[in-house]
Simulated scan of single mutants.
Amino acid sequence: MMKALLINLFCNLLLLQSCNPEKQKMTQENFPYMVTVSAPEEYPIEVHQGYLSNGLKDLICGVPKAGMEQAGWHGDGSKAGQGSNVIPSHLYLTYVAYAEKKFYTVDADLPKDKILQLFRQGFLVQDNSKQTIVDGQEHYEMVPGTYDTFTIGAAPGGIIVIWLSGNHHRTEVCRLQAKEVFVDKNDFMGFTDTTESQQQFFDELYKITVPDSIKAEITKSGIPFGLWDKYREKFNYRFVLNPYDEEDNFTHNYYLYFNGEADELFAKDLEKNEYLSRGIPYNCTYIMKKYSTEIFFNDKEMLEVFNNLKSKHPDKPIDIIITPTFMYNDMKVSVKCEDEIIPLTKYQVKGVWGG
């Protein structure tokens, strides 16, 4: 009798655990994801061959060959049917960098434990099916979510950055270094063309794939090698709303950073008004009580201002201050550290909506 009761109790405990989504998420080993490849818009690349493998070097899935990739350093590339639910331990990838007229190869281990930890940690997302109205404001129940895309970014100089992304969240996994390698252009194209040399192949694809404005910049100043590593530097800052009526506040913001990461903050997090360590902002959507706005930042200006303040005010946090003009017709942006305030001039306000 006692044995039967113990068995029944054990089974009930297992059933309770299986019904607890938080418990499941923290112990789950397999997370489905799609694999994509991206590159800066101005510096397109194309995959020659590649794959993800496990610790035994067994194939997990291929890296998609979806033509020219230039989704932007902050964007995911084309989903071309490659993915898995097994955590990868190794990446092999060979690709052509059209602006550099080179092939690169990266053959490196991945931080499997970190990838698994990020999948397990995930983030909270709002459940749009569970909405309530409090004091005229919409409120949603928050439920656990996690990443669903594994993106390999390739920037000039053989810089490789891996991100996990999903539902307005994007987190860097690691940075790798690819090496220049020789690949016969006939192997890359899949057929033999004896009328075109290797250099002619590079020159012709350079003309076709690289934007004219970037060709002019490369001719004038060369390719800005190292820029994408500068993007990866993080600063301790927050966004501050400075409304003229002193009653408005942020309610739900989306942030996209030049380092390729992204996140969103809901009212509870925004109320904390915390400083967070992150890359310089690229594109941010600010949602307030009645209005919303979208602002694009300039990378050169932000790097200059942030590095200047970091040098003059070591270890001090920074405020990016968003100030609506009268009737919310526009937004003014400045950066403040201690008693120093620097108005920004190169940002772009895409629009202001609501009212």
Score class of each variant (00 low, 15 high):
Trp163Tyr: 15
Lys25Phe: 13
Asn273Cys: 07
Tyr206Val: 12
Glu304Ser: 08
Asn259Pro: 06
Pro281His: 05
Thr105Asp: 00
Asn20Ser: 13
Phe250Ile: 00
Gln82Glu: 12
Asp263Cys: 11
Gln177Pro: 07
Lys300Phe: 08
Phe239His: 12
Glu294Tyr: 03
Leu176Val: 03
Met302Cys: 14
Phe239Cys: 09
Trp163Thr: 15
Tyr92Thr: 06
Lys350Leu: 09
Glu340Met: 06
Asn20Gly: 06
Asn259Asp: 15
Asn85Ser: 11
Ala267Lys: 01
Tyr275Val: 00
Glu69Tyr: 02
Ala99His: 11
Val37His: 01
Phe235Asn: 02
His48Met: 10
Gly83His: 01
Ser38Phe: 02
Tyr51Cys: 04
Ser221Cys: 05
Tyr147Thr: 11
Tyr255Thr: 00
Val106His: 06
Glu69Gly: 02
Tyr95Val: 11
Gly55Val: 00
Asn259Trp: 01
Ala108Met: 03
Tyr51Gly: 03
Asn253Asp: 15
Ser18Gly: 04
Asp148Lys: 10
Ser213Val: 00
Arg238Glu: 03
Asn167Tyr: 15
Tyr147Cys: 06
Phe326Arg: 08
Pro88His: 12
Gln126Gly: 06
Ile87Val: 15
Thr195Arg: 05
Glu301Ala: 07
Asp184Ala: 12
Lys23Trp: 15
Val173Glu: 04
Phe235Arg: 01
Leu176Glu: 08
Thr36Gln: 11
Met327Val: 00
Lys300Arg: 12
Ser213Gln: 12
Thr345Tyr: 00
Asp263Glu: 14
Lys230Gln: 14
Tyr147Arg: 05
Glu100Cys: 09
Glu233Leu: 10
